[in-house]
Design a protein around this nucleic acid. Structure first.
Lengths: 158, 158
DNA sequence: GTAACAAATGAAACAAAATTGCACAAATAC
DNA sequence: GTATTTGTGCAATTTTGTTTCATTTGTTAC
């Protein structure tokens, strides 16, 4: 099976909000037994529909209050250089998210650091230390209006 | 208590990767009993250090393969207009993330949709339908190089 | 229509994990 | 020094997750 039915989606909606919800409670909400919920969760995990199960840590409370947006423009878009740069971003813990994009920029990064000073040091390491980077443009987040990895599950028919 | 010690951080590191790890296993890895792990998890949850516990759903597998970056520039930065716009973005399920930023743009959005056509329809609703939006600039993600909400916990002393 | 089959389910038994109570040890306050 | 607070491990208890199995549901073949 590869397709999701309404029950799967109802389960995912709950797990996307709180994956510590007991299977019994989920079952009650969606109209299934706990065993059925458990089997569906297992299947969706195996099929990769549920990618990960994680705790989200509050960045402010642990001393990383600065969130930054960075657009990176490369000198050359040769696959080799791009791949090297991807690997660097992937390996840098302060880079929370990295997207390779079309449009005005080549990469878009979300960076989380303790202070602007730390960001400055980071730029020296990962931007100025990389000859293939032509230019980068930084924006500082003032308000984390909405942060999550939720996917809207409303209009799914599949 | 408000401060995190080394054990808390070790626990968070594990939970950030996989919050289904049994407390017993966590305890073994960090050198605590399961009960102690459980108490620390409870405390961190209550203090908001652990913000949420969630499942991450694979966007491709459920028919939402398009990820977009949008920079939004407002006509006016009056608090009233900004707040209204924040509320709209917050309430739009396709808007997965929204940051209010300084710099060239006012908002940065990450949007997840089934197709470019759906994006076009969305832009009509949330951008063209909003007089306070002067301009927006879209970039299309070709590769989700790194996606997560992880916060680097390496250099914490606190 | 009905027989045969496959897939998914619920209930119950079972296993594993989380939670709580309690006594004790370390650190802090007085 | 003693009292107090805080955190701990262990063990008992409770809750949750997992497996088993008989039944139901839905489908296909005849």
């Amino acid at each position: 099976m590869e397709i999701l039915d309404k029950l799967d989606i109802a389960i995912l909606k709950i797990l996307q909000q709180d994956n510590f919800t007991p299977q019994r409670d989920i079952g009650q909400q969606v109209g299934l037994s706990a065993a059925a919920v458990q089997r569906r969760m297992k299947r969706m995990k195996e099929e990769g529909i549920i990618q990960r199960n994680i705790s989200v840590v509050n960045r402010e409370k642990i001393g990383r209050p600065i969130t930054l947006f960075v657009e990176v423009i490369m000198e050359s878009e040769k696959a080799e250089y791009i791949d090297t740069t991807k690997a660097i971003f992937r390996a840098t813990p302060e880079v929370q998210q990295c997207y390779y994009v079309t449009g005005d920029a080549d990469f878009v990064l979300i960076i989380v650091v303790p202070s602007m000073h730390d960001y400055e040091l980071l730029t020296r390491r990962i931007f100025f230390g990389n000859d293939n980077i032509k230019h980068f443009r930084t924006m500082v987040a003032m308000d984390l209006v909405k942060v999550g990895l939720d996917v809207s599950l409303d209009t799914i028919l599949a």
